[in-house]
Amino acid sequence: MGKMLKKGVLFFTVLLVLLFLASIWISALAAGMADRVQGRNRPVAGITAEEGDTVDLLVVGDSESYTSVSTMDLWKQYGTASYVCGQGGQRIQEAYYMLKTAFRTQSPKVVMVETNMMFRDPGIFKNAQISLAEPLRYYLPVFRYHNLWKLLLDEPKEMTSDYKGFVIKEKITSCKGAEYMKETGEMQELPEFVRFYMRRIQDLCERNGAQLLMVSVPSPKNYNYKKINALRHYAKQNGIPYVDMNLKAEEIGMDWSKDSYDGGDHLNIHGAQKVTAYLGKYLKENYGLPDRRNDAAYSSWNTLAEKFDTEVKQKTGQ
C-alpha cells in the first residue's frame, strides 16, 4: 500500500507540474492574443492583458453589467479608469475567481457587483460543478484556455468591439417598464451559496484594499420589489453600500420606449449612458476616484474613447 501511495503521489506530482507548465504557456499565449479570445474567457484574458495597476473601478456581473456600465462614458465624463469583467449569465463563483484574477495585476479602489447574478441558482449539481471548475480554471488556466488551439485552424471571426468590457447595443425594443416595481414587504430568498461567495468577495476586496459596492441596474425583466428588498437587507446586514437604480428610474431619466434593446431585459447605449451618468456622479460623490484623463500613462484610453464616440455615432446616427 505504501509503495502504491508513493507511486500515486509521484504520478500526480508529475501531472501537476505538466499542467502547471502548460498553464503558464497558455496564459501567456492568451494574454498575447486577448483581442481574439471569445466568449466567457474574453474578459478574463482582457483584464489580464490590461496594463498593471491602471484600473480604478472593476465591475463584475452578468450581461446586465456589460450592457449598462459604459466605461468610455465614465472615462470621458469623470476620467474614471473602469473595466467591466461581466460575462453572459455569470455565476457568483465565476465573479469571485474573476476578481481574484483581476487582483493579480490590478489594484482597483472600488469593486462593483451588479446584483442580478445573485439570484441565479442552477441547482445543486451545476453549483457543485462550477464551484469545482472555477478554482481549477483559476489555478490551472490550461483548463480555461484549452480551446485556444482552435484559433490556429479556424478562420478569424468578426469580433464585437469591446470597450474595456462594455459592449455597445444600439437596437431599440421598447417595453412597458413603468409598473414593474410594485411595493411589497416580501423578500426573495438569496441562495445560501450566493451568500457564501458574497462573503468571500467581501473578504477578497478587504484584503486587496478595494471597497465593495452592490448595484442593481434598471431592468424591468430582471428586477422586482421582492428582489430589491432582499438585496437591501443583505447589504445592510453585511455593511455593503448598495445602489438600486430601479426605484430611481425616473430620477435617472429612463425611458423604456427607447432605452432597452430587447424589451426590458438589457439596456441599449441610450439607457447605458443614462445609467453611467448617474453612477459616475454617485462614484464621484462617494469614492473620489482619480481623474486620469490628463495622465500620460492613460493616453491609449483617450484614443479608445474617440473610437467609441465614432462607433456610437455610426450605430445610433447621433
Binding site: F11, V14, L18, L19, Q38, V142, H146, N147
Partner: peptide
C-alpha cells in the same frame, strides 16, 4: 507507460469539447 498516460490525459484536457462554446 506514464508517458502514454500523460499524453492521453492531456489530449482529453486540451481537445475535449467542454467549457466555453
Amino acid at each position: 507507460r506514464w508517458g502514454a498516460y500523460y499524453a492521453l490525459i492531456l489530449a482529453v484536457i486540451v481537445f475535449a469539447a467542454y467549457g466555453d462554446g
